[in-house]
Simulated assay, not measured.
Amino acid sequence: MTIHNLGDTNSLMNKFIAEIRDVAIQKDTMRFRRNIERIGEVLSYEMSKSLQFEKSKVTTPLGTKELQLPTDQLVLCSILRAGLPLHQGMLNYFDDAENAFISAYRHHEGDEDAFEVIVNYFAAPSLEGKILVLADPMLATGRTLENVLKALKKHGKPSQIHIVSVIGAQAGIDHVQKVFPKSTHLWISAIDPELNTRGYIIPGIGDAGDLAYGAKL
């Protein structure tokens, strides 16, 4: 897997990351969602540089201009519900992409630290021969992405897989490297060193879904 850690470079995206981490600023749920969306836009722009382009002529009112335009067919797949703001940021840039949505959540039996990942909803076009882009804002243990990959197999074989995440834990990234194809690309804005006993990223941001849309039962 090729890892593109954009947090290693100085850019305006670091401001958005700082705000979603800040315990005071992240209380503004609208700003939190917008910051995740903006991070999705930046990651999408960087990812676009790795796609296939071909020359195409565009007619203007005064003549024609030859430009390099993208040709790949993308399917953006969001992992509900936390992935929605990130998905929207990606869709702002890849506005002609097809879309898929999958529900995957952690089930803690009896409030224990151990959990299983349950996938129980999926809606998508065929993935055959297309570029699959998985939007998962918090790459913690990597088990959610692993189960999503298994669920997607019956919908066709993509030509390539890209994972777009906001923050990941090193352990989760290591796990994803083991279970995803070697040709997979990971586009991420920050990598944190560890997980707590419940599988949350430290220092991370907390629960991205709760911060974006409110606490769940």
Rank of each mutant, 00 (worst) to 15 (best):
G7S: 02
G7M: 03
D8L: 13
D8Y: 07
T9W: 14
S11E: 08
L12P: 03
M13D: 04
N14P: 14
R21A: 01
A24T: 13
I25P: 04
K27H: 09
D28P: 06
M30F: 09
M30E: 13
M30H: 06
N35Q: 00
E37Q: 06
E37A: 05
I39F: 11
V42L: 13
V42K: 02
L43I: 10
S44D: 02
Y45Q: 15
E46S: 02
M47R: 08
S48H: 14
L51Q: 08
Q52C: 13
Q52R: 15
K57A: 15
K57V: 12
V58N: 05
E66Y: 03
L67V: 15
L67S: 08
L67A: 10
Q68R: 10
L69H: 04
L69G: 06
P70F: 04
T71E: 07
T71S: 13
D72R: 01
L74P: 05
L74S: 01
L76D: 01
L76R: 05
C77Y: 12
C77P: 01
L80F: 11
L80E: 07
G83L: 10
P85S: 06
P85A: 10
L86C: 02
L86D: 03
H87M: 13
H87Q: 09
M90N: 13
M90G: 12
L91N: 13
L91A: 15
F94R: 07
F101H: 15
I102T: 04
I102M: 08
I102H: 05
I102Y: 07
A104L: 02
R106C: 12
E109V: 12
D111P: 10
D113Q: 03
F115M: 04
N120D: 11
Y121D: 14
A123T: 08
A123H: 07
A124W: 08
S126N: 02
S126L: 02
K130F: 03
I131W: 01
I131K: 04
V133A: 03
A135W: 15
P137K: 07
P137Y: 07
L139R: 00
A140N: 09
R143D: 00
T144C: 05
L145A: 09
E146A: 14
N147M: 12
A151H: 07
A151D: 11
K153R: 11
K153F: 00
K154L: 08
P158T: 01
P158F: 10
H162D: 08
I163E: 05
V164G: 05
V166N: 07
G168D: 07
A169P: 01
D174A: 07
V176R: 00
S183G: 01
H185K: 09
W187E: 09
S189K: 03
S189F: 12
I191A: 00
P193L: 08
N196G: 08
I205W: 05
G206S: 15
A208M: 06
A208T: 09
G209I: 10
G209P: 06
L211N: 11
Y213W: 11
G214K: 03
G214T: 04
G214W: 02
K216W: 08
K216T: 15
